[in-house]
Design a protein around this nucleic acid. Structure first.
Lengths: 207, 207
DNA sequence: GTCGGCATACCGACCGGTCGGTGTCCAAAG
DNA sequence: CTTTGGACACCGACCGGTCGGTATGCCGAC
């Protein structure tokens, strides 16, 4: 209407640059994190993204779909990152420390996604929830593999089951969103290194 | 009508023993934990509790109120328990280990309340949310005090800020509900002791 | 002309909360 | 002993509003 310039779909137009699906995902993420999934209406999302419901239901099958896409993107990214660090040639302790610190930093960088994961996972439809859980599981198993490697080599204590340690650590990571504030005195990397130190030292064989 | 026996209000009647407010709280807890706060309708709660909406709004001011009462009860109990352990005469390391293990056990015993805390806290009205946060904060500060005591005495490492360690640990605790299953091979106390060990060992001064 | 890419109007379901009533018990009056 | 009155505990129909989703139409590009 008001905007008469010819443009190819998906191309930038100046103020509202990104393609429609991207904008929807972006604003949905922010709103879900701030108000929760159920309390964010589709109307709010499309208004924030500057489109209408028709546009949204043109690209996404449902409100659930939106949430699922947000999850899937984050999970893919974190899995990719872990795989890259874990399979490097560095010594085991360094690989684990890097993986631990990295996941903290990336969780802080994307605090919104993290918050959503925490609060809204259980509101997904059962089958989509299953898909997300399976992906998350793969991630945890890869991480656990690092710990088991250290237990086998004698570098890490063996009196604590590796899966308990993994759940222990990722509990901490998932909860970053509930207390970390950017205004705090510590940077994301500092927190990440602290967390990695705590994990590594907790894994030292007992005296 | 059908029940003609004389009884004092609040007294057991056989099949539906507990008083109405108690029953409401109990069933609300289960439903909130299973389906989330927003997805549980007042109608469902009162049906599960075997009463009507009129009864519920007679005892509680709102659906929010129900949630708040659930929180408050758990927080009071955990605070009481921590205070009792922390102020005992035992050596510091034992007090901290007991406090850590206890909070894990109590969190597992009341997995539902824990789940709700995680998922629904942000859906409370702002002022009630503030009240809950303040109470939670007091709890954390008491716990942090134990760690600072050990840092001052040289028993614990001082290169990690105590509040980071507290958030690290309680992240793990709050997330128990997302993975712990009663069908698993470890008892609540075993998990608690594992977690306490990990915490205490992570706090050992570095080599 | 027809097809993708939206906009707009609208539907039916549901939800939290309200409100006028009802049964029961107890205590004081007669 | 009987009556009365009213406090308490609860019932359940109902209301205003909101929400996810859909049906239909328009419009420029090819």
């Amino acid at each position: 209407m008001t905007r008469a310039s010819t443009r190819k779909p998906g191309e930038a137009t100046g103020d509202e640059q990104a393609a429609v699906p991207r904008r929807l995902l972006e604003h949905a993420t922010k709103l879900f994190a701030k108000k929760g999934f159920d309390r964010t209406s589709v109307q709010e999302i499309v208004e924030a993204a500057g489109v209408t419901k028709g546009a949204m239901y043109h690209y996404f099958g449902s409100k659930d779909d939106l949430l699922y896409e947000i999850y899937a993107r984050v999970l893919r990214e974190q899995t990719r990152q872990l795989e890259s660090v874990a399979s490097s040639a560095a010594p085991l302790r360094e690989r684990l420390a890097a993986a631990a610190s990295d996941v903290v930093v990336s969780s802080i960088d994307n605090l919104d996604d993290n918050t959503i994961f925490l609060q809204s996972m259980h509101q997904l439809s059962p089958d989509k929830q299953k898909a997300v859980r399976a992906e998350r599981r793969k991630y945890h198993e890869r991480f656990r593999g690092l710990i088991e490697e250290g237990q086998a080599s004698g570098e890490f204590r063996t009196d604590k089951p590796a899966d308990v340690v993994v759940d222990f650590f990722f509990g901490s990571v998932h909860h970053l969103g509930s207390w970390y504030r950017r205004s705090g005195s510590l940077t994301a990397r500092q927190i990440g290194d602290h967390y990695a130190d705590l994990l590594l030292d907790a894994l030292r064989p007992p005296a």
